[in-house]
């Protein structure tokens, strides 16, 4: 059976995930019924604009949502074990050592009065109390070599590092406990383009070397095109479309994916005409009824206004949530 490899090869499953935040402007429906699976060794790109719910997904997997202001439901399983109902004490054993996260801004994530090496040593020894100082330093030096940073800089402070080096350190910290799954949330958004390319290459190399599974959260279609095996496109807290990367770029089925691809400028040869997407991304405290993309969709018809489209198969490992798919059949 074809699905056999799928079930045995899965490292993470999200089922019917809902997350809401209470704010003074009302209840923001950040994630509305997301089900996703990540295969072992896979790089899954999650693309979306600000407010699409992509970062919330990452926080949910990491068990970093706090109530209040967040409320959530649904099931998250990691390596065959349900983690969404774990107590904080149990989750702490998984967070960092099994699933680790890389955040966008490396400056706010490092302690300015702590040496680079101490970040690693403390982190390792907190999670693995049996490791002595000497061993922790040895592991730190090995990690620094992996990152392309000379171990001689172990006693430097964060401010002595450039932006790119700091982001390398963040990647190193995420890898320090040898996790199996890395969630990288806009890991290069704060960086210049050449450094971005260096960091993406480093992520690729380390993912190979340690056979990691990777969730890459980004708003940049270029980054997913270069990095991901599969792409999930999010809009208004829902998955609009999910498919292998090549299919997303060459045969996008959801009008939002199509529109997005036609609206981004590129440096590739030939000056293209861009297609403008009218309107703005939805307000999560008051998302549109029916299909959330209907106010901006060029193909909108009666059904889209009040009936929410379900994810339908559009090919092998590919799904899209659009009423047009039903109509064509």
């Amino acid at each position: 059976m074809a699905s056999k490899t799928l079930t045995t090869g899965s490292i993470l499953q999200m089922e019917a995930l809902y997350v809401e935040y209470t704010s003074d402007r009302g209840i923001a429906k950040a994630v509305q019924g997301v089900s996703l699976e990540l295969k072992k060794g896979e790089t899954l790109g999650i693309v979306g604009e600000s407010g699409s719910g992509k970062s919330t997904l990452g926080f949910a997997v990491m068990g970093l949502l706090r109530s209040p202001p967040a409320r959530w439901s649904g099931k998250i399983s990691f390596e065959g074990r349900e983690i969404s109902s774990l107590r904080e004490g149990e989750m702490r054993k998984i967070r960092g050592s099994r699933i680790a996260m890389i955040f966008q801004d490396p400056m706010t994530s490092l302690n300015p009065v702590k040496k680079i090496g101490s970040h690693f040593v403390e982190y390792i020894r907190t999670h693995e109390p049996s490791v002595n100082e000497k061993e922790a330093i040895k592991r730190t030096e090995a990690t620094m070599r992996d990152l392309g940073i000379s171990p001689s800089r172990i006693n430097d402070y964060p401010h002595q590092f450039s932006g790119g080096m700091r982001q390398r350190v963040m990647i190193g910290l995420a890898l320090a406990l040898k996790p199996h799954l890395i969630i990288a949330d806009e890991p290069t958004t704060a960086l210049d383009v050449i450094v971005e390319a260096q960091i993406l290459q480093l992520l690729k190399d380390l993912k190979e070397k340690y056979s990691l599974s990777l969730i890459l959260i980004t708003h940049n279609m270029g980054i997913v095109a270069q990095m991901a095996d599969r792409v999930a496109v999010m809009y208004s807290g829902k998955i609009a479309e999910v498919a292998p990367t090549l299919k997303i770029f060459e045969e996008p089925k959801h009008p939002y994916t199509q529109a997005l691809l036609q609206s981004i400028p590129t440096v590739e040869a030939g000056r293209r005409v861009l297609k403008v997407i009218p309107g703005s991304p939805p307000d999560l405290t008051n998302p549109p009824k029916g299909c959330p993309f209907h106010p901006r969709c060029p193909y909108v018809f009666a059904m889209c206004y009040d009936e929410e489209p379900k994810l339908l198969s559009t090919g092998e490992e590919a799904m899209a949530a659009c009423h047009l798919l039903n109509r064509k059949r």
Binding site: E196, N220, G222, A225, L246, T266, V267
Partner: peptide, 17 residues
């Protein structure tokens, strides 16, 4: 120019930056 991630999965190259 070489560093820009191009939104084209067929143009995947080892980045020499």
């Amino acid at each position: 120019m070489a560093a820009v991630p191009v939104p084209n999965p067929r143009a995947r190259t080892e980045k020499k930056v």
